[in-house]
Nucleic acid binder design. Structure first.
Length: 640
RNA sequence: GCUGGCGUAGCUCAAUCGGUAGAGCAGCUGACUUGUAAUCAGCAGGUUGGGGGUUCAAUUCCUCUCGCCAGCUCCA
């Protein structure tokens, strides 16, 4: 028989040959590195029996698909080890996830950290034995009986759910698991892995079901890849905004105040006010008007908006004010709409772009709270664009460009879009959805942003674009959202009078560029690892004298800089310069002015940059022009 | 909310078998007047997250509660 290789060449094999036979025939080296194969587009094991004219691509550890196979096999290896060590434990499922895998076990005794070590050791032993991993197919009734006898009722449930007459099993030594496969040919291929954590997880992700014990792990083909991954985790840990937020005194939360409620400390507040100033300026420049609205509103308002029907789970209990129920706001939109409705609107008024740094409160379950990234009270950089149909596309264009420009300024250049279209359960005419979705598509195409389509992923009230930004270590964060709303204009009966004198319904778009200031700040901290660019740094310049003699000169320098709006601190303590530098360095202050007698006597400054570089004996005026430049340009560099 | 882990000085951490809490940094005071990531000495700092229980005795064991961490679930 003949099979076809990727280069279209044919190779002859004896009937009944497997992929492994083919690999061996091509070269011994290929056979050794072979993990699996793609036959007519399907990924199969090396033991797969080939047929006449099959198109075969042998997958080695170089192929992307192989990594998933390896990780899946590692999950099995882990289950194998767990079953040997804890015979009472029932196995459930063990899929591959990004960068690794997990396996869920049903056990009465949760795994401890020590157990993880033991399991890992056993896995290594099993790997060293290089046990063959063999596939077999059996009748599903037979399989059900087999797993029932073993007491593996989860497997029985899975087989019944699959509903096929035949199912495949994978065996390695004394361990057999139900699995679609494919797998690496033997446990010896699994060398570089690490078990990372253990946590509870519900069977089938349903909190009504029993909670299982999930062990997470990672696996790689090369030791260097594993090491690099572990490094990446450590790097992420170093950048953790919760750690840096505390070290750099940026923000705090307090048991006494409540969880998920953020206090911005002086240093964090300086960054925030810089962000806000920039934000306001840019919004005015881009044709927005700013609004301020209250934090609470009557129940009737939230009834009209529909929030009490469909969002009440996220809203806090009402407070009674003179017999009326008031709710603290989870969103700003109803307030903006009331302002819209405060007078008759003409087509001449449109588009309206109304923005507000609006602080909202939403109930989040205690278990989901996370630093600045998931909180109960936060300030959205919210805006509502109210426009006519013929304006929607240009409005979306502008929002996208505006957003890109803002992200660029903050030092994020890699951005990806996700367009979510109409879900099954939704409100609004098809024509509205069509027009809006088209405008989103056209705009994102024009913007040049790489994007994906999320069919049916829109909110019930309209389609949306979400933007994810990539940070300095390649993690993606969902920040910007641009959403059409066909619900609220209807509910509040928003109208404008068009050219023809008829009342029409405007389009309404919600958008948040940064998302929320809290979340954005968290991401910003992680992106810069706390070392903010000059224009954002809470303390931009620290002036330090060598000895008392230069104190006055330092004070006069500080005064000049402060008068010009720079954020400056002085360190005139009787300490060695090394001590002062170390402290400023730990606070990641961009510029340190080191002032000794040389500088003082000649009206100069010596600048030590955060990166350790020195700019010696500059005229103050030269230094001043440099910092003015990098500050007004919002440069991400420490020097021009 | 659920499962598991954790909670000791402002911060980072220690305390044997249950025997009544200790260090570094930070803070304060003093000396040193200093040239690129920690000068020296002294002082002070704690209801061991909170409540209840077991015990002659609890940071330690039990229990409730609050908070944090990992994940699940949730994010119309």
């Amino acid at each position: 028989m003949n099979v076809v290789l990727p280069d279209k060449s044919k190779i002859e094999l004896v009937d009944g040959s497997t992929v492994a036979d083919l690999a061996k025939k091509i070269s011994e080296g290929l056979y050794k590195r072979a993990i699996a194969a793609k036959v007519n587009g399907n990924i199969v094991d090396l033991s797969y029996k080939l047929n006449e004219n099959d198109e075969v691509t042998i997958l080695t550890d170089k192929d992307a698909e192989s990594l998933d196979i390896l990780r899946h096999s590692t999950a099995h290896l882990m289950a194998h080890a767990v079953q040997q060590l804890f015979p009472d434990v029932k196995v459930t499922i063990g899929p591959v996830i990004q960068d690794g895998f997990f396996y869920d076990f049903d056990t009465n005794k949760p795994f401890t950290e020590d157990d993880l070590v033991k399991i890992e050791e056993r896995m290594t032993e099993l790997s060293k034995k290089d046990i063959k991993i063999e596939r077999s197919e059996i009748d599903s009734n037979e399989a059900i009986k087999k797993f029932s006898d073993m007491g593996e009722n989860y497997k029985v449930e899975i087989i019944q759910d699959i509903g096929e007459s035949k199912i495949s099993l994978y065996s390695q030594g004394d361990f057999t698991d139900l699995c679609r496969g494919p797998h690496v040919p033997s446990t010896g291929h699994i060398k570089y892995f690490k078990l990372l954590s253990v946590a509870g997880a519900y069977w089938r992700g349903d909190e009504k079901n029993k909670m299982l014990q999930r062990i997470y792990g990672t696996a790689w083909f090369k030791k260097s890849d594993l090491d690099e991954y572990i490094n990446r985790l450590e790097e992420a840990k170093k950048r953790d905004h919760r750690k840096l937020g505390k070290e750099l005194e940026l923000y705090g939360t307090f048991d006494e105040i409540g969880s998920g409620l953020i206090c911005w400390m002086p240093k964090g507040a300086k960054v925030r006010s810089t962000i806000e100033d920039f934000w306001r300026k840019e919004h005015y420049k881009n044709g927005y008007e700013l609004l301020y609205t209250p934090h609470i509103g009557k129940a009737t308002l939230w009834n009209t908006s529909g929030h009490l029907d469909f969002y009440s789970e996220n809203m806090y209990s009402p407070m009674d004010i003179e017999g009326q129920n008031y709710f603290i706001k989870p969103m700003n939109c109803p307030f903006h709409i009331m302002i819209y409705k405060s007078k008759n609107r003409s087509y001449r008024d449109l588009p309206l772009r109304w923005a507000e740094l609006g602080t909202v409160y939403r109930y989040e379950r205690s278990g989901v709270l996370h630093g600045l990234l998931r909180v109960r009270g936060f300030t959205q950089d919210d805006a509502h664009i109210i426009c006519a149909q013929d304006q929607i596309e240009s409005e979306i264009n502008e929002v996208l460009n505006f957003s890109l420009q803002i992200w660029k300024t903050f030092g994020f250049s890699s951005i990806k879009g996700y367009i979510a279209t109409r879900p099954a359960k939704s409100v609004g005419d098809d024509s509205l959805w069509m027009a809006a979705t088209n405008s989103l598509m056209n705009s994102i195409k024009q913007s040049g942003i790489e994007y994906e389509l999320d069919e049916g992923g829109g909110a019930f009230y309209g389609p949306k674009i979400d933007l994810k930004v990539k940070d300095a270590i390649g993690r993606e964060w969902q920040m910007t959202t641009i959403q059409f709303d066909f619900n609220l204009p209807e509910r509040f009966d928003m109208t404008y009078v068009d050219k023809d004198g008829k009342e029409k319904r405007p389009y309404m778009v919600h958008r948040a560029l940064l998302g929320s200031l809290e979340r954005f700040f968290g991401v910003l901290i992680e992106h810069y690892a706390g070392a903010f660019p000059f224009w954002l740094a809470p303390v931009q310049i620290k002036i330090m004298n060598i000895s008392d003699e230069q104190a006055e000169y330092c004070i006069s320098l500080g005064k000049k800089l402060k008068e010009n709006g720079f954020r400056v601190e002085l360190d005139l303590r009787n300490e060695k310069i090394g001590y002062k530098i170390r402290e400023a360095q730990m606070y990641k202050i961009p510029h340190m002015l080191v002032i000794g007698s040389q500088e003082k006597d000649n009206n100069l400054v010596t600048v030590r940059l955060r990166n350790g570089e020195n700019k010696n004996n500059l005229d103050f005026s030269d230094y001043f022009s440099v910092i003015n430049e990098i500050n007004t340009n919002r440069s991400i560099n420490l020097w021009r």
